[in-house]
């Protein structure tokens, strides 16, 4: 059995004590390729933020294998498109884990950046100002940055939104290449056909996990229907999540949170 890269133990994440991800248990195997699927508001992005540590769990915990290098491509980046930077500057940020604040960008690094740009189909874009990039070109550049990060665990939050078919194809090839290199990859996606074709494993999320396993069984129509029935809204009078009905309740510190 392959070791786990990432383990969720009765994990609850949320905002203002309302749960957005509710009592999630499970593990992500090292080298696996997982899609996270679910309606808007089902907790997919929240889960990603929890994994990178941008959001503290309300209860439960996330165990990441020590020494795991994480690359995270958020759904809404905070990139300042008007900042006077070139594609080279943006992509070279991916070298940060290696070079840090003071390390010099070497000739080898430059070659590596050019290679990364070539892999995403942006050869010769090094000196283009970032405010001249199209949405798809920007996404390709960000994938080049992930490439440079050389991470063990890669988290991509809706990377295929508003991207044309050709670009999606190219980016998926890259994801498959990372998968082939033994990296652990988790991708939030909406297109079920795309998920069925490209992702061996799938987590179907509707605040709590509706299904998690091989994509074919996880995306079974019955499961999808169950996922669709979930109520997205928060209710001020939602009951506090109890101590009794949860099988692992004794495991987590007793922070109260609303059920919805």
């Amino acid at each position: 059995m392959a070791e786990n890269c990432l383990t969720f133990e009765n994990l609850t994440l949320g905002y203002n004590s309302h749960a957005a991800v509710h009592h999630l248990n499970g593990a992500v195997r090292r080298g696996s390729l997982t899609a996270v699927v679910g309606a808007n508001g089902s907790g997919k992005s929240t889960l990603m933020k929890g994994i990178v540590g941008a959001l503290k769990p309300i209860s439960g915990k996330i165990d990441i294998k020590p020494g795991t290098r994480i690359a995270y491509l958020p759904q809404q980046s905070e990139i300042d498109r008007s900042f006077p930077a070139r594609v080279f500057d943006l992509v070279s940020l991916g070298l940060w884990p290696k070079r840090g604040l003071l390390g010099r960008i070497t000739a080898g690094d430059r070659a590596e950046i050019s290679k990364a740009l070539m892999s995403v189909g942006l050869s010769g874009f090094e000196n283009r100002p970032i405010d001249t990039l199209s949405g798809g070109q920007m996404q390709r550049a960000l994938f080049a940055r992930v490439l440079l990060q050389d991470a063990d665990l890669i988290l991509l939050d809706e990377p295929f939104n508003a991207i044309d078919a050709k670009t999606v194809g190219d980016l998926l090839d890259l994801v498959q290449r990372w998968h082939g290199e033994g990296r652990t990859i988790i991708v939030v996606a909406h297109d079920l056909d795309l998920v069925r074709e490209n992702f061996p494993e799938c987590l179907l999320l509707a605040r709590s996990a509706v299904a998690w396993g091989p994509t074919r069984t996880a995306l079974h129509p019955e499961r999808l229907l169950a996922a669709r029935r979930f109520d997205e809204a928060w209710h001020e009078d939602a009951p506090w999540c109890g101590d009794s009905q949860e099988p692992h309740a004794h495991n987590h510190d007793h922070h109260p949170h609303h059920h919805a």
């Binding site: 990178v52 941008a54 994480i70 690359a71 995270y72 958020p74 980046s77 905070e78 990139i79 300042d80 900042f83 930077a85 500057d89 943006l90 940020l93 940060w96 884990p97 840090g100 604040l101 940055r145 990060q149």
Partner: peptide, 10 residues
């Protein structure tokens, strides 16, 4: 340029 990215790596 990208504060969110910087937070994720450093």
């Amino acid at each position: 340029l990208d504060p969110l990215f910087l937070r994720s790596v450093s």
